[in-house]
């Protein structure tokens, strides 16, 4: 399974499915990371985690652990 965590910096991916559960999963969806959404990986924090994404025209930060629950196409 290819996840958002594996996307290289500067690349764009399309979300296929959200795994994970509960509050974190809902929060990820609420922030606009839904099926079919384009996500651009902007950069990593200076210490290597979390990641910074561009989604629906704004910037979002997400921990790698949570990014690995987001399956991409």
């Amino acid at each position: 399974m290819k996840t958002l965590k594996d996307v290289a910096i500067g690349d764009t991916a399309v979300i296929k499915r959200l795994h994970g559960e509960g509050a974190v999963r809902r929060r990820i969806m609420d922030m606009g990371l839904t099926r079919g959404t384009q996500v651009h990986v902007r950069k990593l924090a200076p210490l290597g985690d979390p990641m910074e994404l561009t989604v629906r025209g704004y910037e979002l930060s997400l921990r790698k652990a949570d990014a690995s629950t987001i399956e991409i196409e």
Partner: peptide, 12 residues
């Protein structure tokens, strides 16, 4: 409980 989701907006 559930870990605090660190899904945070980085505002302009």
């Amino acid at each position: 409980g559930d870990p605090a989701p660190f899904v945070m907006e980085l505002p302009s």
